[in-house]
Design a protein around this nucleic acid. Structure first.
Lengths: 197, 197
DNA sequence: CCCTCGTTATGACAGCTGTCATAGTAGCCC
DNA sequence: GGGCTACTATGACAGCTGTCATAACGAGGG
């Protein structure tokens, strides 16, 4: 998650996602977002007339697209893609971050769901859309690897669910143990689904 | 999660857990907790001189014990316990709640991790302890069902991780799909680990 | 030069937060 | 009754929140 040099609007959306995944939605203030993005405070009401609601929703949309792009990139980097290999890459992104940069942040979509699912319908919908945008390419990839069509989406949900849960546990424990565990335990199951056809 | 008729102190701890799992730690105010518990506001500083930090930590301890007790009760209710049966019971608790009471709340431990892992060391530790208190009886149960000792704890972590992730997804989607999916997909894997011995 | 429009600047607003100081009450033991 | 302890009540505090009103800037076109 490196900050690209885009316009101030895009930087604020990115910064919002960054801060949300660190501190949660509620603890992330609009003034913090502008400061983190190096954007003027006055631009907030100009670019996001819908207020925090809109900013959070756009941050989640961004996160969903980002996750989907990562999946595509993982697949492109593997010469002989396997379900376990894809899952290992998805998990590896998090173990790498935690090992090199510490356990400061989690998944922004999960954070928004925990903080806002009950209090903001638009945030909840945006989170659901983000999960859907993430699940789709994973499921498609599984199908492409020989997983029966009927099981691709369930298995993709299992992968993302196990990853999300492991992220939470790892962050609480400040240990990547949970992440490496789910990757190791789930790998054979995923590969088996691709070969039984 | 039915409210027992205990003293005001215990009621406040319980109410804190209840509100945290609904709205997150940050959005849960001390005044809200007292009101929800039907306890006087003045009792907060009397019972919890450590402030919100202490209240949150105790709520997480309570949640960890509660989860562990539920596992023990699930096991006691099964005449021939199997790993998949235990997992189905754990997931079933959530599908039942969501189907009958709506998707208002998630797991308080996950909520605290998302909101406070970075900002409060004691809350983070309390969350890690809660996960540990929950994992232990699950792993012990797996061992008792014939799962090799070396795989019991990893599989318990996988179960709890997948459940936590599915809770988040289900709450975002307002659909139990993710929960039923992980229970169905993971069941055979768990039972296989118990019989290969 | 002036006018316009996308952007920014600034200050204010009510509302809420956790925390604290202080006082008050109820009950029990001596 | 006096004194002690456990608990409750209440009001205040500074600090922060999201939002808004208002004004100023700055470049580009007429």
């Amino acid at each position: 998650m490196v900050k690209p040099e885009r316009g101030p609007r895009e930087r604020m959306v990115f910064s919002a996602a960054q801060l949300i995944r660190r501190d949660g939605v509620e603890a992330t203030g609009m003034r913090d977002v502008a400061a983190h993005a190096g954007a003027p405070r006055g631009s907030l009401q100009h670019y996001f007339p819908g207020g925090k609601e809109q900013l959070v929703a756009e941050a989640l949309r961004w996160a969903g697209r980002y996750a989907a792009d990562r999946v595509a990139r993982f697949l492109a980097a593997m010469e002989r893609p396997t379900p376990s290999g894809l899952f290992a890459a998805m998990v590896g992104q998090w173990t790498d971050e935690y090992r090199t940069s510490g356990f400061a942040g989690g998944c922004p979509v999960a954070a928004a769901t925990v903080d806002r699912a009950q209090s903001s319908e638009t945030a909840r919908e945006a989170a659901a859309d983000a999960f859907a945008a993430w699940t789709r390419p994973v499921a498609d990839a599984l199908t492409g690897m020989g997983v029966p069509a009927a099981r691709s989406e369930p298995l993709a949900t299992l992968m993302i669910g196990a990853l999300e849960g492991a992220i939470v546990i790892a962050r609480a424990e400040r240990d990547v143990r949970a992440l490496t565990t789910v990757a190791r335990e789930l790998g054979p199951l995923l590969d088996a689904a691709a070969t039984e056809a």
